[in-house]
Design a protein around this nucleic acid. Structure first.
Length: 573
DNA sequence: TTAGGGTTAG
């Protein structure tokens, strides 16, 4: 013991230097690391040691200095697989996965270095980060051929690839074949289900994991909470909250944020705000959750107040925050303020993000400035399905059915983007607003046949509305009767509206009966019904309905509008 | 005596 200490204190050698460098990397102590590196340059033996080299590369990549890492790497004429791997993983962990894959291909193709399981973990992670399923799958094939497919870390990284690319089937298959699983395996599979909206599967697996004797950690809980949020499952969410409290991780940043989001999605503003107040680190993510949560719960004004508090607290907004703020503006139809935020977005360089563009398109079209939506849309170099859908919806809101159809066709014919369920809702409602019966019905029929998208209750609602508006009441009713899923209140509501327009009280009665059963608290439907009776001279029925509304204490929500002068809202009704 | 890897919040 004594002798080893005296050896250590003599002079650093190729054994002690990597340990010291590793310590620096762990502490992100770049300055100290650089000093050590400086000393080494005088000693050729230490400097050319590959263990020292990889420790240096690790230090620089953990500190985000990939240029320095590359300089170290280049000093080795024949780098071994560990040095190559350090570079690949360094690029991957610094978010430069393209460069990681480039390095990997150079290593294998040009230098003939055989990758080992550790290299492949970084390569698979790079594919996952780029959502490159094809590349990842071919690496998966290689891993099987090499017989590496029993290493837990490597298989976990493959599972993560399927999570990130949304390939639930591949993930499920791999998960089923794994004979060795750890908490990361279970957490990844839960995330896979949760992110795909398979909330029941996610929560079932969460319970199964506990039954199998694994302790969920904060990562597991975040995914399980995501499932609760998506399903608005307050009961399960509260149970997970209790579990987090027991494990004293309730206020850990990611858990706390996910909990706040869950309470917001379950309309429990008070619980969400209570947690926010208690959260020790208020970063831009948790502020954004609060801002979007308030807007989603009909408190867009509060959203903007919270945004101001956030700025006052010194927290800088990012692109996601700004999108949430724009959504709140869109809700409040306050254009002047939104214009300032658009200016800020451009100044911050956030405006090149696809989801920012989509939010701007939505904002301008909802504020009545369709031309600005078009300008944003046309200025975008990259358009995803949300962007296309927002533009189609924008034309729809403005009654420009022809333009909506043209955009929809342009999307299908000229881009690789595939329409999703929301796109169809947008185009169908554009057809409905414009009274395009044949086009709407045609698109509705193609939805499942050509795009394998099952229409949901909302899609049916829009088509019923379309049929109803154009007077095809019998067809509308037939469609409802033949629906493979139970018709929601929107569907019967659309029929009732059509019955009122066309004075068909008999069918209106049928629709109303279903509606009052499905959504007995919705005052608007009672009003629609009583108006219909009134127009038909059925005063007795009308009085009956109005009495019912009074007895139930329901009030139709007053319509809201704002007046904007200069940059402030001066009145809100 | 020394090295490189896998899951997390909007």
């Amino acid at each position: 013991m004594v002798s080893s200490i005296s050896t250590m204190s003599d002079k650093p050698d190729k054994f002690s230097v990597p340990i010291a460098l590793k310590g620096c990397a762990g502490l992100a102590a770049l300055k100290v690391g650089r000093i050590i590196h400086g000393f080494l340059k005088k000693d050729d033996e230490i400097n050319s040691d590959m263990f020292v080299g990889s420790a240096l590369i690790e230090l620089y990549s953990k500190c985000g200095e990939m240029d320095d890492a590359l300089r170290v790497f280049k000093e080795f004429p024949c780098p071994d697989v560990v040095l190559w791997t350090s570079m690949v993983s360094g690029y991957q962990q610094n978010g430069n996965s393209e460069q990681a894959l480039l390095f990997f291909s150079q290593m294998v193709m040009k230098e003939g270095v055989v990758p080992d399981p550790v290299t492949l973990v970084s390569v698979v992670s790079a594919c996952a980060q780029l959502a490159n399923l094809r590349g990842g799958k071919s690496v998966h094939g290689f891993i099987i051929r090499m017989g590496y497919d029993t290493g837990l870390s490597l298989v976990n990284s493959l599972l993560n690839l399927y999570v990130k690319t949304g390939s639930v089937d591949n993930g499920k298959k791999l998960f089923g074949m794994m004979y060795e699983k750890d908490v990361i395996t279970w957490s990844s599979m839960i995330a896979c289900y949760a992110q795909d909206g398979k909330t029941t599967e996610a929560l079932n697996l969460f319970h199964k994991m506990i039954e199998n004797g694994f302790q969920p950690n904060s990562v597991t809980m975040v995914s399980a909470l995501q499932a609760c949020s998506a399903a608005s499952n307050l009961g399960e969410g509260k149970k997970i909250h209790e579990l987090a409290r027991q494990k004293s991780i309730e206020l850990e940043r990611s858990v706390c944020t996910a909990l706040i989001d869950m309470y917001m999605k379950c309309s429990r503003l008070d619980d969400a705000i209570d947690l926010f107040r208690r959260s020790p680190q208020k970063d831009v993510v948790v502020w954004s959750v609060l801002i979007s949560g308030c807007a989603q719960n009909g408190q867009a004004n509060t959203s903007l107040q919270i945004f101001n508090s956030m700025l006052c607290s010194g927290c800088r907004p990012d692109a996601v925050t700004m999108v949430k703020v724009l959504m709140a503006c869109s809700e409040l139809v306050i254009l002047q303020q939104a214009l300032c935020y658009h200016g800020y977005l451009i100044a911050s360089g956030f405006d090149d993000k696809v989801y920012v563009g989509a939010a701007l398109i939505d904002l301008y079209s909802k504020c009545g400035c369709l031309n600005d939506s078009i300008k944003v849309f046309e200025g975008m170099s990259e358009r995803d399905v949300v962007v296309w859908s927002a533009m189609i919806a924008g034309y729809g809101i403005h009654g420009l059915g022809q333009e909506a159809l043209r955009t929809f066709n342009q999307m299908i014919e000229t881009s690789v983007v595939k329409p999703n369920s929301v796109t169809f809702l947008s185009i169908l409602s554009a057809c409905s607003h414009a009274g395009f019966l044949d086009e709407g019905v045609n698109i509705f029929n193609r939805m499942e046949r050509e795009y394998d998208i099952e229409p949901n209750s909302e899609h049916y609602g829009v088509v019923v509305d379309l049929l109803g508006r154009t007077g095809k009441l019998d067809e509308a009713l037939r469609m409802i009767e033949q629906m493979p899923i139970p018709p929601g209140p929107h569907v019967w509501g659309a029929l009732l509206g059509a019955c009122r327009i066309h004075g068909n009280v008999t069918m209106g009665d049928i629709a109303a009966k279903h509606l009052l059963r499905l959504d007995p608290e919705h005052a608007g439907y009672y009003l629609l019904l009583s108006n219909m009776y009134g127009e038909d001279g059925k005063w007795e029925n009308m009085t009956q309905i109005r009495t019912m509304v009074k007895m139930k204490g329901l009030n139709k929500l007053p319509g809201q509008s704002s007046i904007e002068t200069g940059s402030r809202v001066v009145a809100s009704y």
